[in-house]
Nucleic acid binder design. Structure first.
Length: 453
RNA sequence: GGCGCUGUCGUCUAGAGGCCUAGGACAGGUCCCUUUCAAGGACCAUACACGGGUUCGAAUCCCGUCAGCGCCA
């Protein structure tokens, strides 16, 4: 039995489509499950869009998802494997050779400058590993243009030639190609070779229920990297679209998925992309991260989005990251939640002004809090922070410290929501807390927070 | 329009004739916990597209209809 060889053959369009990423993933999973070879081939025949940047997007996306390939461009200008070149733009002579070969069979003819392949009129049967035997009636099927007037070979032809030349044993691709597959098979047969096996996987649909297109939100894999999702979470989610590990299981390690993945378990129906579920899965992975993993992730993620963070004292930075982490689940949120603590000149949100600073008592409480924290011990402890709040509340005649606590949060961060407050106060440290309370109190007294002084 | 694929809760799915008064998860709702927000716990609601068969028995098999998607025009 031949060793399994599968391939992912994207076009450099400037983004790695989420559906393409899933196709790549399923090919990769099958290759790894079977101990086969995963080939990356770049279908860069559209010269107008074919740029180095666009090709790099593919490499970057694949690496981000952890989909390593055994053959293809290595992504650094080199090449792996001996079935190259792996760029279609460099395979012109191979296509010419096969065009000649096909012409020699007498199954082609010229028509208006184009070269056409005589489609057999017999029924075309695709033995698909996912869809079963699919039969196409070809009595009405027009002949297939395989070389255009301008001399360029057509997609269906080069695709077949490449898969043939590269020894691909299983073509795993989107179901949108199913209807054309009988043409490919006819070409293989005309060339006198056995076609590979086919497995057409269901499509990923957008919210509206049609094929996810580049225009759809979140259609590009890069979107999730930028939003600070964890690649393992995205990968896990993508696995669940069209494949299921069985009942009542969803979060699985990639090793476990590789172990269980099989073509016969693939679904036949299209799946809608559900960003909310991905978000939830990301949260699961987010919380499962080990501390050192999180530290590494945060450093890399923040290096781009919030370079100022790197300059923070290590204790302060780590403390902040720690208290924020438990409330959120993406790198983007991490950056945003960090903002109030990166400057002493932080803004006050609309909500804070409306809910907290409009309280006529606010000034009094802020003064009391400021005084309380000024006379607290150094370093500040959570217990003491809580004690200060309780005391201020009591003196204000409040049955519970909740109101004071909410005001305090808005005062030191400008926001009504945020990290666990007492933890946060300890991380900020006594002097910052006092300074922030003073700033807020003064602004409040000046009537700049929407409150009435 | 022709051809093809598909059709289980809003969404992703489990289900391969009796285990199904259809299970899980996300989302939604209620409650608990609670300093916000998360997390967590408890509970609720919601589905076998429709119509015919086959069978003692069908979500599971067959046929038709409809719908969605895709491909080719």
């Amino acid at each position: 039995m031949n060793k399994v060889r599968v391939r992912f053959a994207p076009s450099p369009t400037g983004l790695l489509h989420i559906g393409g990423a899933r196709t790549a993933l399923f090919n990769w999973l099958y290759a790894r499950h079977m101990g086969g070879t995963f080939v990356l081939r770049v279908e860069d025949t559209d010269q107008s869009r074919n740029t180095q940047e666009a090709v790099d997007v593919i490499f970057r996306g694949m690496r981000w998802l952890g989909l390593d390939w055994d053959e293809g461009p290595d992504g650094n200008g080199g090449v792996k494997g001996d079935k190259g070149p792996y760029f279609q733009s460099q395979r012109g002579s191979i296509y010419t050779k096969y065009l000649d070969k096909l012409q020699a069979t007498g199954k082609t003819y010229e028509d208006g400058g184009a070269l056409k392949f005589k489609m057999p009129k017999t029924p075309g049967v695709v033995k698909d590993l996912v869809c079963g035997d699919v039969t196409f009636d070809r009595t009405m099927e027009p002949d297939l243009v395989i070389r255009r007037k301008d001399g360029s070979p057509v997609f269906h032809f080069v695709n077949v030639v490449d898969d043939l030349e590269m020894g691909i044993t299983h073509v795993i691709r989107g179901e949108d190609h199913l209807s054309n597959t009988h043409k490919h098979i006819a070409l293989y047969e005309a060339l006198g070779v056995t076609p590979p096996q086919f497995a057409h996987i269901p499509l990923i649909l957008n919210q509206g229920g049609s094929k996810m297109s580049k225009r759809d939100d979140g259609a590009a894999l890069g979107f999730y990297e930028e939003a600070g999702y964890l690649p393992a979470a995205v990968r896990n989610y993508l696995c669940l679209l069209g494949w299921s590990p069985g009942a009542n299981e969803e979060i699985l390690s990639i090793e476990e998925i590789v172990r269980r993945f099989d073509l016969k378990d693939l679904n036949r129906s299209n799946a809608r992309f559900d960003g909310a579920k991905l978000f939830w899965i990301n949260g699961e992975y987010w919380r499962a991260m080990k501390n050192d993993e999180f530290a590494k992730f945060a450093e890399a993620s923040l290096a781009k989005s919030r370079p100022a963070v790197a300059a923070l004292p290590a204790d302060f930075r780590n403390g902040l990251l720690g208290v924020i982490r438990e409330k959120i689940r993406t790198g983007k949120e991490l950056a945003e939640w960090l903002d109030p603590y990166l400057t002493e000149d932080y803004p006050y949100s609309e909500e804070a002004r409306k809910k907290q600073f409009s309280n006529p008592e606010a000034g009094k409480w802020l003064t009391a809090l400021e005084k309380g924290f000024s006379s607290s011990a150094e370093p500040l402890s959570e217990i003491e922070a809580e004690a200060v709040c309780k005391k201020v509340a009591e003196e204000a005649g409040l049955p519970k410290p909740a109101k004071v606590i909410h005001l305090l949060r808005s005062a030191v961060s400008g926001h009504t929501v945020g990290p666990s407050l007492f933890h946060l106060l300890v991380v900020l440290g006594k002097s910052k807390v006092v300074a922030r309370l003073m700033r807020t109190r003064i602004l409040w007294e000046e009537g700049k927070l929407g409150g009435s002084a």
